[in-house]
Design a binder for these strands. Structure first.
Lengths: 220, 220
DNA sequence: CGTCTTCGATACAGTCGCGTATCCGATGCA
DNA sequence: TGCATCGGATACGCGACTGTATCGAAGACG
């Protein structure tokens, strides 16, 4: 059914290897950026294709020439996010100083948390958008895998940082690492959304809370 | 503007003290129940008024006779939830055995967590709906206060349980109590949604995780 | 320099949901 | 039993969004 048309569109928009032309890639990025903003502002479902295009400076024609549907765009947004996390992981690993710096445990932890927060998308926008996307993925089976992949990347990234910090500090955590990371992520999300609900401009003592939690979990 | 009409409607649907007739209250409940289900299934924004009414066995006429808008219904859903939490708190306090039962700390904690989970709305439906409502409240200032009130009630409820458990056990927690509760709530949410994303029927080891976390936080 | 392709804009038809105005049966009250 | 009010159903017009089919300009290529 309509396989000919679809094949034509697919062939037209994407080279045999899956690459896009530079121009095409640029419009895709702009559309995805606009989508993330609107997802955060209005939610995935309430962000109309029309509005996304308008914000990106295109019309719906451009959208449907690049994506089959909004869900398909969501999937690509998630994929891109996953790649960004991988890159962030590498940067963080590089920027982390080697062992033997003689810093106190608290300081090392604080540094690691700072690095994590810095590596995170700075704007809350992205966090809210991801929360929206997760909820959307909860009801949209096609998106689940994409979300889980992003999540896995992020976890790996944090695990790397945290392990390095622990190595430098010589401490141990009783709880299994994956669980610790889930915990940190959940707390991060929770703190940011609570601060938003309370009408604060910036999360109150986010770093302090994360540090306190880690401090409570690490033993010698 | 239209103040006369609004006043009429207000007067018609609600007695001077704010009470509703039994019949009216019943349809309101049915509409709210249907709304919560649909919020969990499709999200707040995608749950159309039409669909809510259909599921509740009414038409839109009934809806607009009872609520001014979907947001107004959300607010009432939140209010109801807040009251339910208060009731749950009382029940929990009553059902909790007195001190001096000679149980181990782990067992007491496990009991407290069990009580908490039992007092929680059993279906994940309600949790997801609340997550949707929170995200919706994030963008809808009129709803923020309502959501925060529910949250405060829930926290108070948990704080009560937890404090009782701690008293029985003689333990202490280094982290401030409100923060601990946020943490537990965040972990609860996170675990449930991860299990749903992974396609599991029931959250894997929810109790165990909560217990482990508490165990890690409690000192003598 | 002309042709061909690519990519986004435009135009269109169709669907869905909203909120209001109005109506009618049921229920309560004298 | 008759009347008034209440509560939900019905009917209507409206606006927004969708996805597709088609068009035209900018850029690639020989």
């Amino acid at each position: 059914m309509t396989s000919i048309r679809e094949a034509q569109r697919g062939a037209r928009r994407q080279g045999p290897g899956g690459e896009f032309s530079a121009r095409r890639q640029a419009t895709r990025e702009r559309l995805m950026d606009a989508a993330v903003e609107l997802f955060a502002e209005r939610g995935v479902l309430a962000a109309s294709v029309e509005e996304i295009c308008e914000r990106a400076g295109f019309t719906r024609g451009a959208f449907y020439s690049n994506f089959d549907s909004k869900d398909e765009l969501c999937l690509d947004v998630l994929r891109r996010k996953g790649e960004q996390h991988l890159v962030a992981l590498q940067q963080v690993v590089e920027s982390m100083p080697g062992a033997g710096s003689g810093l106190s445990r608290a300081q090392v932890i604080r540094d690691a948390v700072g690095l994590f927060l810095q590596a995170q998308p700075k704007e809350r926008t992205e966090l809210i958008a991801m929360m929206e996307l997760r909820l959307h993925a909860l009801r949209t089976p096609e998106l689940r895998e994409g979300w889980l992949a992003v999540h896995a990347n992020l976890c790996a990234s944090i695990a790397g940082q945290l392990q390095m910090a622990l190595d430098r500090v010589g401490g141990r955590i009783g709880m299994p690492m994956p669980q610790v990371i889930e915990l940190l992520g959940a707390m991060y999300e929770n703190t940011v959304s609570m601060s938003l609900l309370n009408g604060e401009d910036a999360p109150t003592g986010l770093t302090a809370q994360l540090v306190a939690l880690l401090d409570g979990l690490i033993h010698d």
